[in-house]
Computed example of a mutant assay.
Amino acid sequence: MKDLADDRDRGRTDDRDRTDDRDRAKDPVDTWRRLAGDSVLLDGFHALKHAVRFRAEVLVAVTGDRRAALALADELAPDVRDTLDGLLVEVPEAAYRSLVPRPHPTAVAALAVRPSREASLRALTATHRTAPVVVLDQPRNLGNAGAVIRLAAGFGATGVVTTGTLDPWHPTVVRGGAGLHFATAVERLTVAELPSGPVFALDPEGEDIRGTKLPDDAVLAFGSERSGLSPELRARADHLVSLPMRPQVSSYNLATSVAMTLFHWSAAGGAPIG
């Protein structure tokens, strides 16, 4: 992921004035309200922790209990504790609750700069990819999309692409992904814009995936929770594969299907994570 991180670093200069605003602002609540419209909401301690680990540019970070947040950092994320110490500003609980649509149990929230579309597309369309791209074809459930992004980041996938109307950077998706959008490339594209590479689409009528080796540059496509693959995606597929499933069981959860498929790729000799 180094190239993607470097691209993000180079793309941050346009937002330096906003960072300067944060540094100069005396009131973090006022700063938040001015920046919230075009920033990524990091909802909760773990989202902020992961964003910092994967070099997101955090514009402002608030907490209703700074001591408790830093105690969590000491316990769960000592590698970024000093960075969080410099970022987190304590605000009254009522102020914190006014800034977020759904207060997190950790009472931590932050705003970050979204990676540039250009940087994400460079990663997704790289000529020699060493890990698959996951495609969610017209997904509907925001939480499921977030869980898939978290899985993809954990397996070291190149990225996650959604087609259709769901915004993969919606705050609920970012919350479900625990801030790991910054650990992989995340974009919304049309089927015609999908990255090159052999497309393996999951379908109940496909061949058993256990007899298939998934190449590192595979595009792994998963249909929507309700209607499956769209006709456009099915026409684009090079291979239809299915997951083992007991008869009379209707389907797996979307995130479960992605996890099983990525594990199959990894266990069969996928590129090492790191």
Rank of each mutant, 00 (worst) to 15 (best):
P103M: 00
A73K: 04
A94L: 13
A95L: 04
L70I: 07
H104E: 15
A68T: 13
E75C: 13
D85A: 15
Y96W: 08
Y96I: 02
V60Y: 02
A77G: 10
D65R: 05
P92A: 03
S98T: 10
P105Y: 07
R67N: 13
V62T: 01
A77K: 09
V58E: 00
L88A: 09
V89G: 07
V62G: 01
V80D: 04
V91L: 00
A73N: 00
V60E: 08
L70A: 10
A71V: 06
P101T: 13
D82I: 13
A73C: 03
H104S: 14
L99Y: 07
T83L: 13
R102A: 15
D79K: 02
A68Q: 13
H104A: 15
A95K: 08
L87W: 03
E90C: 04
D74M: 10
P92V: 04
V60N: 00
P105G: 10
L76H: 12
L59P: 04
R102N: 14
P101V: 10
D74K: 15
A94M: 10
R102Q: 11
V89D: 10
V91Y: 02
R81N: 13
D85F: 11
L88G: 05
L99H: 07
E90D: 06
R81F: 12
E75V: 11
R97F: 02
L99N: 04
V58L: 08
A95T: 08
R97Q: 14
H104Y: 06
P105H: 12
A77N: 05
D85S: 15
R66N: 09
G64Q: 03
H104C: 11
V89Y: 06
L84T: 01
G64C: 05
L84M: 15
P101H: 14
R67Q: 14
R102F: 11
V60H: 00
V100R: 09
V100D: 07
A94E: 14
A71P: 01
L88N: 05
V60D: 00
L59F: 05
A73F: 01
P101D: 12
V100W: 11
A73M: 01
D74Y: 06
V80R: 04
R67H: 13
R81L: 12
P103T: 00
P103L: 01
V62Q: 00
L84C: 06
D85E: 15
L59D: 03
P78C: 09
L88Q: 06
R67I: 07
V89R: 15
P78T: 08
